[in-house]
Amino acid sequence: MTWIRHDFERSMNKHLNEEVEPKVDNSGYVRMLNWFKKNTDLLEPHNSGTVSPDSGVKHADKTEALKKAGLDTSFPYGYCYPISQFVFYTEGGYDGDYDLRLIKEIKFEFKGKRGQTTHWFCQHKTSGRIIDLTIEQFDRIPGLDIEDLFKDSRRANLGFPYYRTKGSGKVEFDHTPPCLQTLKLYDRYREDVEKIPGLEKYWSACNYATERRKGDENKPLEEMYDTREMLSLDEIVRPYWS
């Protein structure tokens, strides 16, 4: 069974947008952001981490075209999902005070090249505070104010509600756990900085140290899904990648 979590609770979204003014406040996350900037070697190249080789998603091609037009596509461009998911589980995940949120179909133009993208960030469930560690990527695109689009976001996540492991079999959850790109970041972060309870339990559950960690840390990680599951997930996530 495939799984994609798009919790479009319209009444909650309407209440949040009417009662509070969404405002980006990354205070308390400066150290984490600086760590991400120093460890970009852990981030897989654009489109290299797709869920199947037949995805048809041309993120890498679009990124290359924009790069040739002069757009700075270095970090954090294109990495809002794993970074925001990292923050989401740091804040307690589904039991915490923040939602992982998605803005879809963001259209823009850069020096004659048209682009369309999505954006992920975290927002406090009641105060409206937004933690967005990759927001600076939009400073590179004239005429696009991402803060005007926060009101159009919805709660979302991508993935299956389980990990497949060799030693523990299928480890299931009643929600979407962190993707392995997020855990790849955490695997080094926990050694360099600190252990985070909201990520540590998933790192342990998927047997990361014994089954996912590679000798070459730049080598793409396998999700350990079977072929049929991979293709099914691809059909679901395709509309949300650009």
Rank of each mutant, 00 (worst) to 15 (best):
T2P: 11
W3M: 13
H6G: 12
E9A: 15
R10M: 15
E18A: 13
E21A: 07
D25W: 06
S27R: 13
Y29M: 08
M32S: 12
L33C: 14
W35N: 02
K38L: 12
E44F: 14
V51G: 13
S52R: 01
V57A: 04
K58L: 06
H59K: 13
K62I: 12
K62M: 10
K67D: 10
A69N: 01
T73I: 02
F75Y: 09
P76D: 04
Y77N: 09
G78I: 09
G78P: 03
P82E: 04
E91N: 13
E91H: 10
G93W: 00
Y94H: 03
D95I: 15
D97Q: 09
D97T: 10
Y98L: 08
Y98N: 06
D99S: 08
D99W: 02
L100Y: 06
L102F: 11
F108A: 00
F110S: 00
K113C: 12
G115L: 01
T117N: 05
T117W: 07
T118A: 09
T118S: 12
H119Q: 06
W120Q: 06
W120R: 00
I130S: 03
I131P: 08
L133D: 09
I135E: 05
Q137F: 02
R140W: 01
P142F: 01
P142T: 00
I146S: 07
L149F: 02
F150P: 03
F150T: 01
K151Q: 03
R155E: 15
L158M: 12
G159F: 03
G159N: 05
R164D: 09
T165F: 08
G167C: 12
G167L: 12
G167V: 15
G169Y: 07
G169Q: 00
K170G: 04
T176M: 05
P177W: 02
C179S: 13
R190Y: 05
D192V: 02
D192S: 03
K195L: 02
K195S: 05
Y202I: 00
A205I: 05
C206N: 00
A209R: 10
E217W: 12
E217Y: 13
E222T: 09
E222C: 14
E223R: 10
Y225I: 06
D226H: 11
L231T: 14
L233T: 06
D234T: 07
V237F: 04
